[in-house]
Design a protein around this nucleic acid. Structure first.
Lengths: 149, 149
DNA sequence: CTTAGTGCAAAACCTTTGCAACTCT
DNA sequence: AGAGTTGCAAAGGTTTTGCACTAAG
């Protein structure tokens, strides 16, 4: 159930947004880098090669729009800038991040186990849960080996 | 096992940091507001009343120092500024955040259930986990009632 | 006394906004 | 034609930094 350009065009039409070339290029960039967590500046750098006149402000505005439409998910790894990843499937859940404190690398981790916890929390705290974000901080295998010298 | 000023003084002495009045005041502010998630500007505002000459840069530098010492935990709720809370007990684990998408309020949630998940992740991904952060986004009881009009 | 820490102001970042020109529908 | 969109530059907000001065050990 991957999002494609056609879905997007319909989504836009329905809400009277316009499908501009800039928006297409930016979305395509996410489709081409679906495994990565790109910042506005990252996108700007990539997109510049194809469309040198495309402005950084447009990147920011498009990122905000696509986040509002739940096409992108805004994440924060604490490195001072927002990062975005494409929501490939309909449900944004079930995928978390392993952040290495040494090299800063971010890896994905698939998981379903949080569902039950979520229900428990909702009940106990009178809180309607829409989404969650789980991040693990630690050291990846590579960095662990390096530090063993 | 609450952190107090004496523990801190020893911690500082051991590492040849100086215990200045500014640092004491800032730490005391966290002890007095242990349930809250204060930003640099929050701290600055509170501290100003006691020590009007204390500068914002010092607040930032102290926040960084105390985070490095694991006395404070740096959190990000996506509101454009970093927030800090004091690590009252030795193990920083077992407490998460419920963030209301309507009013922006942040509530704490106590929990132990993530331990087993953490072990599973560590094993499966060859990743040594030091810490985790779990955030639930949704709507608190109050905002849910309000939106039912 | 020596070295770390402070305060101030300036700089550095990331992100948002105002506005005239532009382009999808 | 008309509404939404873009690009540029300027402004905004948070955090960092350089440097002369001060204070802790």
């Amino acid at each position: 159930m991957t999002i494609n350009m056609n879905d997007l065009k319909h989504m836009f039409r329905d809400r009277q947004y316009k499908m501009t070339s800039q928006r297409q290029i930016i979305l395509q960039t996410f489709l081409d880098h679906s495994e990565q967590h790109l910042s506005a500046e990252d996108i700007y750098g990539i997109v510049r090669k194809v469309a040198p006149e495309l402005g950084l402000a447009t990147v920011y505005r498009t990122l905000e729009l696509l986040s509002d439409l739940d096409v992108l998910q805004k994440i924060d790894f604490g490195d001072g800038r927002h990062r975005y990843e494409i929501n490939e499937n309909s449900s944004p859940h079930h995928h978390h991040h392993l952040i290495c404190l040494a090299c800063g690398n971010v890896r994905e981790f698939e998981d379903d186990l949080l569902e039950s916890l979520e229900n428990a929390v909702a009940l106990k705290s009178n809180f309607t849960i829409i989404d969650h974000q789980l991040k693990f901080y630690g050291y990846c295998g590579e960095c662990r080996v390096k530090s063993e010298d």
